[in-house]
């Protein structure tokens, strides 16, 4: 798959993602960013069934329902986000190993200091950073 060069996220949605990550701290937060052509339009906050500070798995039935909803609304899963409460905003070996979906961009929020948010593609070309453009809307 071709990597997307850019992920566009409205600033109010960036705030929503970060506040979700802070709320779930010290556990990892996770969610789906729905949109079109690399532009995020909606944040789905998901339940991390692992309730852990070092790993996450989205609740499968929630994931199933949200994927159907996105399909109905004509939205794509443009990105997936999760937090790293205790490490850098960079994909861990586990993130890479479990990146079954190669089309969405992987957004990672580090909460070590002030929240840091970065985006990556994870696919057969390895891990590559994607520019995250925050826009006012």
């Amino acid at each position: 798959m071709q990597s997307k060069a850019q992920l566009v996220v409205p600033s109010h949605l960036v705030s929503e993602i970060i506040s979700h990550c802070r709320k779930v701290y010290p556990h990892e937060a996770c969610g789906i960013l729905a949109g079109k052509d690399g532009v995020v339009k909606k944040v789905y906050k998901m339940t991390n069934i692992e309730n852990s500070g070092v790993s996450y798995m989205m609740e499968p039935s929630e994931q199933f329902i949200i994927m159907k909803e996105m399909r109905k609304e004509g939205l794509d899963m443009v990105a997936l986000y999760h937090s790293h409460p205790h490490s850098d905003a960079y994909p861990s070996p586990r993130d890479v190993k479990l990146a079954f979906y190669t089309e969405p961009v992987y957004v990672i929020v580090s909460l070590i200091n002030e929240p840091e948010i970065r985006a990556f593609t994870i696919n057969e070309d390895g891990v590559n950073e994607v520019e995250m453009k925050v826009v006012l809307k």
Partner: peptide, 11 residues
């Protein structure tokens, strides 16, 4: 029938 890979990872 829907086949749905999990979304998981973490550190």
């Amino acid at each position: 029938v829907s086949i749905i890979p999990a979304i998981a990872g973490g550190r």
